[in-house]
């Protein structure tokens, strides 16, 4: 039922050193178990500004939103880039646009 390949999470850095989390695939209940090992690494990182790169994130449900919120809470300051319209709108209707730095759309 759970397909580990549904979702993926990678920890990378900007050229100037800023932390970037790249999320891919479908972030829902079925996709979440596959992310568990990567998430342990993510939550082991110290609090710092983070950029969420969502260019290849194709689906986001309430479970995925929960994960994004916990990531945002962990790092404090969050910016989001590359979010496709469906993903961006999910965050907006949940009143989370500000929380994820999606202010200007």
């Amino acid at each position: 039922m759970t397909d580990p390949a549904r979702a993926a999470l990678a920890i990378t850095h900007e050229p100037e050193g800023g932390l970037v989390l790249v999320l891919r695939g479908e972030l829902d209940l079925a996709g979440l178990p596959g992310l568990a090992p990567a998430l342990d690494d993510v939550f082991a990182l110290p609090r710092q500004p983070v950029v969420l790169a969502l260019d290849d994130l194709t689906f986001l449900d309430s479970t995925g939103v929960s994960l994004l919120i916990r990531i945002a809470n962990h790092f404090g300051t969050v910016r989001t880039r590359g979010a496709a319209e469906p993903v961006r709108r999910v965050l907006e209707v949940l009143g989370l646009a500000g929380r994820f730095g999606l202010g200007e759309g």
């Binding site: 919120i69 907006e92 209707v93 949940l94 009143g95 989370l96 500000g98 929380r99």
Partner: peptide, 13 residues
């Protein structure tokens, strides 16, 4: 209608 963060997520305003 302005939408705040969901219950369970600390609101910014």
């Amino acid at each position: 209608c302005p939408v705040g963060t969901p219950v369970g997520v600390s609101p910014s305003v």
